[in-house]
Amino acid sequence: MGKQKISSSLALSENGFLFLPTTGETFTVNEMGKLILKYLQEGKDQQSIVDAITEEYDVEAEDLQRDYLDFMGQLKQFQLVVEG
C-alpha cells in the first residue's frame, strides 16, 4: 500500500471528532485512530506509523499492520484519505 494522505479539508479535533466540510459528515475515532490520523497529517507513511506505534505500545507489528489496513479501508470508504 502506498502513502496515504488525509483529505485536505478534514477537520480533526483534539477529542477525535472529525468533520468533513465538503459533505457535512461527522465521525468519531478512538485514541489510536486519532494518533494514526495525526501521523498521517504529519505526512508519515505506513511503515513509519507502524514503527512509531509498535515502539510506543505493546503490540505485535503483524497485528498492528492488519488493524492499520482495516482502519485505512474505512477511512478510504468514507473519503477521508486519498492515495498520496
Binding site: 479539508s9 466540510p21 465538503t22 459533505t23 457535512g24 459528515e25 461527522t26
Partner: peptide, 21 residues
Amino acid sequence: AMKKMYITDKGKGWSGITIHD
C-alpha cells in the same frame, strides 16, 4: 450550502450543518 443531519418523516430537515463545497 447545508447538509440535513436529521430529517423528519415529512422529509423536513430538523437539524443541519453548513458545508463548503
